[in-house]
Nucleic acid binder design. Sequence first.
DNA 1: AAAAAAACGTGTGGTTTTGACACAATAAAA
DNA 2: TTTTATTGTGTCAAAACCACACGTTTTTTT
Lengths: 234, 234
Amino acid sequence: MEQYSHQSRFLVATDCIIFGFDGEALNMLLIKRNFQPEKGKWSLMGGFLQEEEDLEVGAKRILNELTGLDDVYIEQLKTFGRVDRDPVERTLSVVFFALINQHQHDEGAVKAHHAHWINLNRKPPLIFDHDEMTRLALEHLRYQAALHPIGFELLPEKFTIPQLQKLYEAIYNMKLDRRNFSRKILSTGLLINTGEKDQHAATKKASLYQLDEERYKDKFNSFWHFMPHPAGQN
Amino acid sequence: MEQYSHQSRFLVATDCIIFGFDGEALNMLLIKRNFQPEKGKWSLMGGFLQEEEDLEVGAKRILNELTGLDDVYIEQLKTFGRVDRDPVERTLSVVFFALINQHQHDEGAVKAHHAHWINLNRKPPLIFDHDEMTRLALEHLRYQAALHPIGFELLPEKFTIPQLQKLYEAIYNMKLDRRNFSRKILSTGLLINTGEKDQHAATKKASLYQLDEERYKDKFNSFWHFMPHPAGQN
DNA sequence: AAAAAAACGTGTGGTTTTGACACAATAAAA
DNA sequence: TTTTATTGTGTCAAAACCACACGTTTTTTT
């Protein structure tokens, strides 16, 4: 069959926005390009889609190449297609959104790609339309994290409630009330107290929790309001 | 510059999921293909992306071709890229999600494309991965409508609260309490009572409302809970 | 060794929001 | 003019929310 032969064909790339959390601030993994075009500038990690490769597989390939990680939380975010978004040749970019446990990645692979964890509040300008992609991803993260129990993807398997709170505070750039936050999170029934205590802590040691995987899958799409409602918003 | 010359290029299509509401049920606009492949089967409206065309422009072109409408609410939903999703040749499809006022479209254009408004509850199987696209779109509609004041896009400019409620009931396939629904919707402050009454009604005439465009834009991204919380969900 | 400091865990109370439900008002039809 | 269908407004108890207080645990300070 040759019905499509007269249609145009396009380059398709995948770019990944990789968020990580170091316990204090929200970071993203960026690379300093050592190839043309825009050599030396900051950009998202990306690559071209291969002939026989599914989109998500392509994204995971790129993620694995950079972080050494395999089981990463990713979502397809949006496809960017402005005609002139890549000065070399028109390229569509399917943008993926990834959350990883920052302390688990492969240092070597990161170094090899000239990649760095950059605090979101100190992000340099990126090439092409990567700033726009980043804005969208952050918006999406805020949206998702307010409604779904997604933050766990950024934390180690076992974590404390105060750690989780710090993560939320970093995501939204706001202070939260310790007691209300704890009550809200626990009321989801998604957390299991392991009985262990966080030995890192300098003062009173907080309990370590882990996800109840069963309930997590079940209730992922329930609606929640993890963020407080500023008075008068409704 | 020729840096990308050795990379693969792909066909890129746009498919549109077009939702409409006839006052009773939620419908989508589907076409009966009169061309190969899969001639005679039902499918979404779609078309190939053109060389110098932005993605959203392409989607709007296709929408306009089918409905005659120009200012349509659309969102990019997701890009489908399974290697074998189109049997003729690998084609990526960027799926758009459109909400239109069903009573405003161009009958002629619809007929010319062998298109029909099909009640979502009686949707026939569609070609390729269009069923999966539809599922995702419905899920997205439910998600969006539960949290954002998006339903208005499916109604005429002036509408009554009971009309809006019927729309929500159609979206979620559930009955809602009239009084609570009204209270919730009005509490958003997004509706202006025009003072007019709906002259269609057979009994007591309901007030016609319209969107407060100003506040709508401002508050679109506020969080709401338009759907009731079944007891014990949280 | 005792006191201070820091951070954690749980509780309380007033306010707001929610969901279930009742009743009066309006307009056409019988 | 009665009946019927539908709309607008109100009530109340339960639940959720937020602001805030207090006691506990562990390290640091003196």
